[in-house]
Design a protein around this nucleic acid. Sequence first.
DNA 1: GCGAGTTATGTTTTT
DNA 2: CATAACTCGC
Length: 760
Amino acid sequence: MTPLPSNKLQEAFSSRLTGSQQKAVFHLDGPLLVIAGPGSGKTRVITFRIAALIDSGVPPYNICAITFTNKAADEMRQRAVALGASGGAHISTFHSLCVRILRRYAAFAGVNPNFSIYDDSDQLKCIKQAIADCGFDTANFPPARMLDAISTLKNKLIDDDTFKHQADDFFSKTLSKIYLRYQQILKDLNALDFDDLLMDAAFLLEKHSEVRADLGNRFKFLLIDEYQDTNHAQYRIAKALASAHNNICATGDPDQSIYRWRGADIRNILDFERDWPNTLVVRLEENFRSTPGILEVADRLIAHNHSRKEKRLIVTMPSAGRVAIEQYEDEAAEALGIAENIEKLVAEGVTLGKIAVFYRVNAQSRALEEVFIRSKIPYQIVRGVEFYNRKEIRDVLAYLKVFVNPADRVALLRIINTPARGIGKTTIDKLQNFAARRNIGLYEALKHISNILSISKTTAAKLIAFLTMIEGFKKQVPLDIGDSPDIKSKIENRKFSVASLAELVFSESGLEQSLAAEGAEGKDAIANIESLISAAARYDQETENPSLVDYLQRISLFSDVDAYDTSAERVALMTLHSAKGLEFDNVFIVGVEDGLLPHERSVDFDDETEEERRLFFVGITRAKTNLCITFAKYRQIRGQLLRTVPSQFLFELGLSFSESTRSVVPESCFLGPEQGTHFQSEKESFVSSCLGGEKNYKSSIINHKLSPRFHRGDIVVHKKFGIGTVKDFADMGENSVVTVAFNTGQTKSLHLKFAKLVKI
DNA sequence: GCGAGTTATGTTTTT
DNA sequence: CATAACTCGC
């Protein structure tokens, strides 16, 4: 029964694959784990395997490949076809796959297939209501924190009912109540959040053997890329999908696991061999991407992670390019320096599409953007979801969501008075009360408006006009026919267009009119909606059977990198997380400072610092030829100009400290493989020169150089509170707290880190 | 009911 | 600093 690709194909592939890659690609039967470093061709192995499977006679229909982003799925699809594989294999992300499964087996899963998918801001509204419904205060139970806790539970497949029985302490019991209520709200609104997609799909597969058998029969070969970043729910889904045949192939690199904070469980990859007996493990250790200098730096960095199996990166590329570390005064100078570097590269003949800048947090893109605009360097910020988060876009989409899923109260509340049509808070409250009393949905309540006595005739008329308008739009939407082909063919005579419906909504709802009346800002908004409509038109064109539900569910799962236009000759700006899976000839990594990378929210725990190190490792290993790492002496954070401390990671790369300029690097320095051995000793001397053998060099630098000290009785000026007298000073280095009695009469304890206090 | 203006607040990474 | 959540006057 072992399928085998034709000799012709084996030969063709063999010339393009290394020995270990061949071993992985042609081991078509039974579990396979590919553990491989960056740039070793993990994704390539999966793509080739798809082609090999199809060539060996497996129908494409029986193949299911899971990628980390939709973008990666698209690329894999194209590359497989380029290798001669016919289309038809299912390639998607876990989330997209789950949506398909939940829709197809909606009856088993107990969901209405027209469900809305709720993102953070929708979730926030629901959790706030859940907290309020339970009689708790959002001050004691921060909505975001609660959502986070619930998300963690869902990723572990602990549903609200299960959690109720294991909650034993006060916090858990409170959380349990909120969790139960939150799930009830989502259910009432026929909505699923991102984590529900995975959890519900996992339970569906585990509880219904017929579904499992059906899907096991459908997907006879399961391939999963980036396995190190799967969470427990995804693991259980994979387990269920492969249970019938054990034809599972996973590829991953524990050193590139960067989503632990989101529930990714590194044990999934570490325990793979235990989970699937008789696994063939293939290690790909050669790196075909980066030059030796880059790999040496990467290797040196990742070696500082203790909880890791040692793994070498074997160099195959010739020595070329450079690794530079540059220090700047502040983020503006840093951005300017990068712009100059880019101009130099361009002068050498490099095209902009081969350059990328990575940063830890999205806010860092601003400084770069400003300079790039001034320097006239074309760039693209890789932030796909941002577009769909714009107010006007969300407004149009909310209309569409209501057509498909009238129970979606979040969407309905958004549009009921957008644009303003005289339906205010009081009316909405009355409507909600009525709906709650009758135990019906809000949309249902609109239909019984005449029964709400407290609502005046004129207001009722407005509500009726709104309802009539929505009902009119809904007539344009064909009934959702799901996946059943027999009914499908009967209704097929008319091709539905999302774009024309969106256009109709825009012009007829009054949105266009109200935006047009707004002037310049409205103009931008109109332009955005127009590009939404053209994107929808593209969807109509590319999709065989465009449907509104499918469209809405699809854009809900849109990720940042999905918007990345690889063909554009523009510098790509993105977060280190988004950079995963990509590669560029020239890479800049900015803001490598303590508190930013590693991020301040992660420095308290060693395992989190290790994840930050992996994140930096991922960034470094994206570079093929040139790598430039930058940091600044001062950085504006949340409006405050702060003196920064170079990241500990810089020393781990082997940076030296210049005593004469008291800076970490004179102006810039180059690291290369030949410099190797000296770094450790130089780091030691740097630390001891700063603090004479103490361990915590971070705060010492600040104390030494810039943290002013205050004494009782000092007169100080504060930006906001004015003049005052120092009452107390708690010297804690960068965390020092000053207590000041201001002349306004108030006494304040201020963190030196944040407050700008000047001694006079 | 509505919008302008003010004040509090919270700050990572994302499918 | 940037945004969400308020207040207030029309």
